[in-house]
Design a protein around this nucleic acid. Structure first.
Lengths: 196, 196
DNA sequence: ACATTACGATACTATACGTTCCGTTATTGA
DNA sequence: TCAATAACGGAACGTATAGTATCGTAATGT
């Protein structure tokens, strides 16, 4: 039932890797249930079946704890199938799959909402969020290289346009994020609304 | 220094309309500064220069107070200039203007983030948020009638696509929401990313 | 004038946070 | 095998702040 990490040679009971993971799992669960600001170390300890001291021994406060817990959630995976439309669809489809099988769909709005008025969180998360967008702009850039997309394309704006509908549904209409919506979504972003 | 409302004929000191507005203003300010969950009635009372009892006399809890305060913020205004592109651009430009001159840009993410794990708030706000989208779908529908947009267009998805980039910037990249970005944004949504 | 109601301020009570301490347990090294 | 060491879960501590109740004062209508 105990941990198995090597203490680097020093004596004493080693830190339990089980407890570590249980704490991170409990943090993710509670983030989804009550959100960032209502999350307390005491609640995490109870959920994880762990003493509060065990948490404070590893993280000085809830902010870095939340950051590490969030970092354990899955992210967008790069795909290269030969054309932009297929790449974007495949990437977003598997991403929406993640939304339906992990608490990410609840945690993301909570942290994004907190970011707006919590500078410390903002500074920690902005780079993380920026990194999570990368696979998207990479796919678009590849589309430009292939000649599928125009040369002068604003990649940032294009990325925002592609995932925009997901963000709107996620934050506002709060509706079902089915992978089936990806097809029409990407097609519309690529072709535009206007009559051709 | 006193209020001026008519008490409906009943005797006694009338409720101060000044205090009422000061409370709503303070609520908006604090929503922007600390967010929904960290907002306290005590904090609102202090900011408004008002006793706590004065607040509890009017609102049973902070939720309806927040709802009413949010309801006082400006919304999207309908515009009809003759073509979809102009309508959308004018509407979104003035909306972004609002984002830069009111705390809306901070409050919206905070409430949207809370909505994800606060069912009571969700039930109250989902209709409000849906109503705020209306002018957008109306403008798009008019575009279909005019023949500028295809007949079978999915209006909801189209609306999500148009405002998507704003939502993404608002929640994630948190960057400058200049009215100047509206032109390229709407053009890209209408024409699509792909080479024509 | 007098009754009535709202006002700002403050005292009160209960809850719940973060922190620290404690006896126990697991591991290392002699 | 047995001390030394460090992490463990649980519990106790002090503090802060929520919401409520109460106070004397101010502003109305009769």
């Amino acid at each position: 039932m105990a941990g198995s990490g090597s203490n680097g040679g020093s004596a004493g009971r080693p830190r339990s890797e089980e407890a570590h993971q249980a704490i991170l799992d409990a943090t993710v669960e509670l983030l989804a249930e009550v959100g960032f600001s209502a999350l307390t170390v005491e609640g995490v300890a109870q959920r994880a079946g762990v003493g509060k001291a065990t948490i404070y021994r590893r993280w000085p406060s809830k902010l870095p704890l939340v950051v590490e817990a969030f970092g354990g959630l899955p992210r967008l995976e790069e795909v290269d199938m030969g054309d932009v439309a297929s790449d974007l669809k495949a990437m977003l489809r598997s991403y929406l799959q993640i939304f339906n099988t992990t608490p990410l769909a609840t945690i993301l709005p909570s942290l994004a909402g907190e970011r707006a008025h919590n500078d410390a969180l903002s500074e920690l998360f902005d780079p993380v969020l920026k990194g999570r967008r990368r696979p998207l702009t990479v796919a678009l850039e590849r589309g430009v290289e292939r000649g599928e997309l125009p040369a002068g394309l604003d990649l940032e704006l294009a990325a925002d346009l592609v995932v925009g509908p997901i963000a709107v549904k996620l934050f506002f209409t709060g509706g079902k994020l089915s992978p089936r919506m990806v097809g029409p979504m990407v097609d519309m972003a690529l072709a535009g609304l206007a009559k051709s």
